[in-house]
Design a binder for these strands. Structure first.
Lengths: 188, 188
DNA sequence: CCTCGACTACACTGATCTGTGAACCGCCCC
DNA sequence: GGGGCGGTTCACAGATCAGTGTAGTCGAGG
């Protein structure tokens, strides 16, 4: 799925990812990105077409990196309950490099237009995680339709609270809460 | 606490609140706000000093409205557990008019500068809710330091998932999860 | 009467925004 | 050796950004 990028395009995407995440999408201009990548604005537009598409590419790339980590963590487990909780294990290490919280939630806050190409990426990411929870819980024999959504809420809340509420313990206690909810459902 | 505003300032604040929340802070210019309020840009700057201060005023006003609702809901309950869970009851009605999720989380995503006057308001809002949970839980005899943070995570996660993950059931299932966690803690 | 506060009108700065046009260069591959 | 591709340089368009300066209107209150 990793589309082969020209060297220039790769540098642009790296720089854009860093700046968009750290400062916000509207706060970073294409001039800055081009300059910081050692590339002309012309090249940026030749490769990505528009800022909106560059934003979408940034979100897609970040989504891909994150999904790889989550998928690997899930596959590494055999116990069905541990598989369902694997995204939380990832969360605790992921947040080390995610000081500003969830890139997709942050992007959502800035992209008001529903037809922005980045919105599809955000929708997709959230839906993917929710379905992963549902699938793995079902594999563990837990079919309560609310439980998957509760895990999603805990997951999102942990990322958001970590950053916006400055609570570094959020991922840890969210993991504990998720385990408690799943184990309680398993007992009944 | 409600500082008396001149008629013009009140209109500016109303319009700014609506636009900042719906479209994002960077996406809305002061010219638009002034025009939409039927007021000169000069007046806007005479009343608020700068866009940053207007943003802070927007967040303060929204914070005040929300705290009133939460405080009223807490005071209306006598049972300590129900008091601790009152913010979740508010959540379900609050989200009806909060299609774009948590204004403070969204603002956090856009305000990269740590010294932005709006950041203090965000910090304060999150800290206030967390301490409210801790206080009410303690009153119910629940002193587990993690539990209050778990309720905060569920609360934030519900707002974020509701909007960014397009899951209208998020507030309802988050409330159920919060109740389950608190009741489980009360039993032990 | 006179001042003060809220507000208007409007021009203007200087920066920054996204996006484009056109000419050009070197390298690799057919 | 010719063409396409990745990239360069530079100039430029047109809009929008936050913020200011100046001059003046209107009503309420001392």
């Amino acid at each position: 799925m990793t589309t082969t990028l020209t060297p220039g395009a790769r540098r642009i995407l790296e720089v854009a990812s860093e700046l968009f995440y750290a400062r916000g999408i509207h706060a970073v201009g294409v001039d800055t990105i081009a300059a910081e990548s050692g590339v002309t604005k012309r090249t940026l537009y030749d490769r990505f077409g528009s800022k909106d598409e560059l934003v979408a590419a940034y979100l897609r790339a970040r989504d891909e990196r994150w999904r790889e980590r989550v998928t690997a963590a899930v596959e590494a487990e055999t116990d069905p309950v541990r598989r369902a909780l694997a995204p939380f294990a990832v969360l605790e290490s992921w947040m080390v490099d995610a000081e500003r919280g969830c890139a997709f939630v942050n992007a959502y806050a800035e992209l008001d237009r529903a037809d922005h190409p980045g919105r599809a990426v955000i929708d997709d990411e959230k839906r993917w995680l929710r379905e992963l929870f549902a699938t793995e819980l079902a594999r563990a024999g837990l079919t309560d339709p609310d439980l998957a959504l509760q895990l999603l809420v805990l997951h999102e809340g942990a990322m958001v609270a970590y950053a916006a509420a400055a609570t570094p313990d959020a991922p840890r206690v969210a993991t504990a809460a998720a385990r408690a909810l799943v184990e309680s459902a398993a007992r009944s």
